[in-house]
Simulated scan of single mutants.
Amino acid sequence: MLSFRRCVVRVVVGAAVVSSASLGSGAVVGAAPLSSCGQARQDVAISSSVPLLDWSENFGIDAQGDLWVSRVMRGEVQRYDREGRLTATVAVPSPGAVRLGPDGLLYVVTGNSPLAGSGGIVRFDPAAANPNPVAFAIGFPQPNGAAFDADGYLYVTTANGLHRLRRDGSEDMDWWTAVSVDGPNGVAVSGDSVYVTANFVGAGGPVGRVLRLSRTHPGAATTLADLTSVGTLPDFVDDLVVRDGVLYVTTLAGHLVRVDPNTGAACTIVSTQPLTAVVADPADPSALLAGSEEGTVLRIRPVG
């Protein structure tokens, strides 16, 4: 999430994160937030041309298996084929999450910046020769994460909470009235469960929280896991994905954390540079793709 709140957290945890140049390996100072799941393998799937300017805020996969990366600082989403070659660029102001809709179109959050004013969601045909983004929904303050459920509802995290949109772009106001989530960031849906990463939860509350809501009864959000890094220093959680019944969560301190959705048990897959987003790798069933603030997209293969 690229936001004012994230900038604040960066200042707070800045002492815990150092550059790869100062460490020689891109490691993060201090212990991992939780016990280690085992030594994961990682390599570079897509390199960054210009660090930070290429900030890979989020990404999604189209029906052809191509990866679309949100370059939030550049104001565009970029398409890469399975060999990591750049094949298309579409202008989208301050893009966030990219998700494949049930209609085969790509839905992209726009306005994911404190300077963008009101934001929304645009959509376009990823197979078109020259994709043309058109508005799907507007009027949301700094939208960031997004996820579709099995019925075609689109869940969107914004600066004022979690919204649910119908297929025509209208908002489900019954959902909005029932749900209450402070500081939502990433969102993923599996079955009846809606998983949300949240930071600055309540007055003086913790950052780094993973919540679960019910699609059918969203009134009560339950805490699945609280993730912390060095000692009592909180770690800002960003995006998450469900793969093979397991949650994977990215954090500002550079951790990819695996969370058991049944028990809340969590462990660290890998510690690396600050991570922004995670998706299942369409080209490798054993791997995940993780975005970073530096701009590199990493391929990470968890153990077990």
Rank of each mutant, 00 (worst) to 15 (best):
L211R: 06
G231K: 04
V259E: 06
A221M: 14
L240P: 00
V241H: 10
R215S: 15
T216Y: 14
G245Y: 11
L256P: 06
R209V: 14
G219V: 05
V257G: 05
T251F: 00
D244F: 01
S229G: 10
V201L: 14
V259R: 04
D239H: 03
P206Y: 11
V230H: 00
G219R: 14
Y248D: 09
D244L: 05
D244E: 15
F200H: 07
T222Y: 03
P234T: 01
V241A: 15
V241S: 09
D239V: 01
V259Y: 02
L227E: 07
V196K: 10
H217G: 10
V210Q: 07
T223R: 05
V259L: 06
D238E: 12
T197E: 10
A225C: 03
V230N: 03
N199E: 09
L233H: 00
P206M: 08
L240D: 05
L256M: 07
V259T: 03
A221P: 14
V237A: 06
T250S: 11
A198L: 04
P218D: 12
R243Y: 14
R243W: 08
D239W: 04
S214F: 09
L247P: 08
G254C: 07
V257E: 06
S214H: 12
T223H: 03
G208E: 06
T222V: 13
A253D: 09
G208H: 02
V207E: 15
V207N: 15
A225E: 11
T228E: 00
R243S: 15
V196W: 08
V257Y: 02
L224Q: 12
L252V: 02
A198G: 04
L240A: 06
V241D: 13
V201H: 02
V237L: 01
A198D: 05
V201D: 04
G202K: 02
A225N: 08
A225W: 06
T251D: 02
V207W: 13
G254E: 09
H255I: 00
D235T: 10
T216S: 15
L233P: 01
V230C: 00
G219M: 08
T197V: 09
G245L: 13
R212V: 14
T250Y: 05
